[in-house]
Nucleic acid binder design. Structure first.
Lengths: 192, 192
DNA sequence: CGACTTCGTCAACGCTTGTTGGCCTACAGG
DNA sequence: CCTGTAGGCCAACAAGCGTTGACGAAGTCG
């Protein structure tokens, strides 16, 4: 049978470990880092709190293991220049709604220094390369990527964390229609 | 001597109360609600933790008293239609940088249900009326105001909370130049 | 001066948190 | 079958939290 590459030797406790990670993601997303307790996470997973410590070492270790983010940003290379905004916004919306990890990370990043640094890392390692594909002037890539981040994270904040009613009520298509031109301009327009 | 309207009769402890509020704002802004403790706030203010309880009743009461937000949004009436975006972005930047209360509120709103509801209230009572002045179609006001909020709060999040380096490095004029057209479009453009 | 309110400190409470170590159970390999 | 090891639970710990009430100091007013 084809195993995972060359990682773990398939321990007997894998289902428990996975249950812990699932519960942790849910709690971190709903409550943030400080209010999500190991005890409630363990109860959600149906096991003893000490198991969490044994498998993940500490609360920080658990958070690090639970929130492993891959934005899976698309390759903008083959795309027409004027569709990158719409492609990015659509992709972000889909990622955010299928995966509570992103909400967890945003919540924690807003309170916790370690969380904020993790988000800086994701920005640098995942968004910057994509912006490099869309932005003509290489020197401007960080600025353009940061502007894009303000709009995309602002949407996530108001829609998934603060839940401003009008932002929640918007349909995905409406959001794309409104935000795509903004992101498009931030990435590809000449300096204003 | 001309007193404040008809509020407090000027107690002797007013300086202490103010010191508590100052320390509280600073701690809430830096650490968020859960990690900011009454004990550290009291130590910062140079008094005993029990004083905080006496004057503000509870930690929640302290937060409510410390974070009283008035955005002082300008009257858009007399402004040319095509300058509302720039006026709003400029004003938001100024408010945010002179006052750590807004950062405190944003941090808490991201973790705490009560904080999120407070932000919803500010949106409804302060941003909505201003949007009404700029937006031609009354029925669209909530949507347009929410879109504006995504961009403005997204800027605050990346620049003042997450501190993405390129977002921090931007000058105020650059930010206005980039964001003003976005906000202008969200408020005044016809449906996309 | 003496009575009374206000300001402030101190010590403690009950509770929750992350974390630890010991113990029982059950499966695996020889 | 028997032994070793990994999975799991239980009880407890030290620390920190918000909160409370008693008590002394200091100012206020008759």
């Amino acid at each position: 049978m084809p195993d995972n590459k060359l990682t773990a030797p398939a321990r007997r406790s894998d289902t428990t470990r996975a249950a812990i990670l699932d519960a942790a993601r849910e709690r971190f997303a709903a409550d943030g880092y400080e209010r999500a307790t190991i005890r409630t996470i363990a109860r959600d997973a149906g096991i003893d709190p000490s198991m969490v410590m044994r498998y993940y070492g500490s609360k920080e270790g658990l958070f690090a293991a639970a929130v492993a983010v891959d934005l899976k940003l698309p390759d903008l290379g083959p795309l027409p220049r004027d569709e990158v905004g719409s492609a990015l916004v659509t992709h972000f919306l889909a990622m955010w709604e299928e995966n509570e990890v992103l909400t967890a990370l945003l919540r924690v990043g807003a309170t916790n220094q370690a969380g904020a640094e993790r988000m800086q890392g994701i920005f640098q390692e995942q968004l910057l390369p994509v912006a490099r594909q869309a932005c003509p002037d290489p020197e401007q890539v960080p600025v353009r990527a940061a502007l894009t981040a303000t709009q995309l994270l602002g949407l996530a904040l108001t829609r998934y964390v603060l839940r401003l009613p009008p932002a929640v009520a918007l349909s995905r298509q409406e959001i794309v229609a409104w935000l795509a031109p903004t992101v498009q301009r931030y990435l590809t327009a000449p300096n204003p």
